[in-house]
């Protein structure tokens, strides 16, 4: 069964220059392992290939539990000089949550 990340987790986007940060926080702690297994840095990079030009690094925070993705070259130059509407990439948390997982 395919499920959207939106149904399992919530997320907040942040920005540092041209780097996008995305948290992925399961609503239920027991879904953390599922997310940790399926939502790898490579999977996120592929899902957001139209958005993220650089590398994606994933950090695991089992105590919260949550995952944190740091996405390089994802904000078309960064907050101050980008021509995009959402220069901070603040709306991109919901781009991550569009991802479908499972079969």
């Amino acid at each position: 069964m395919k499920r959207k990340l939106y149904d399992l987790a919530h997320s907040r986007a942040g920005d540092k220059g041209n780097t996008l940060t995305l948290s992925l926080i399961p609503y239920r702690a027991e879904d953390y392992e599922l997310l940790r297994t399926l939502v790898t840095a490579d999977v996120v990079k592929n899902h957001m290939r139209d958005i993220i030009a650089g590398d994606v690094i994933r950090y695991e925070l089992p105590n919260l539990p949550a995952l944190q993705f740091v996405c390089q070259q994802a904000l078309t130059g960064g907050v101050t000089t980008s021509l995009t509407m959402d220069t901070h990439g603040k709306s991109l948390s919901y781009a991550l949550l569009e991802m479908e997982i499972g079969d």
């Binding site: 940060t21 925070l61 919260l64 949550a66 944190q68 740091v70």
Partner: peptide, 26 residues
């Protein structure tokens, strides 16, 4: 949780002029 991770790059090395903070055990 959303705010703790907001704008954080490496959660084990959150760099400020005061400290290199580690959020991983929070």
């Amino acid at each position: 949780k959303e705010q703790l991770l907001y704008e954080v790059m490496d959660p084990s090395r959150y760099i400020t002029p005061d400290v290199i903070a580690d959020f991983t055990q929070v």
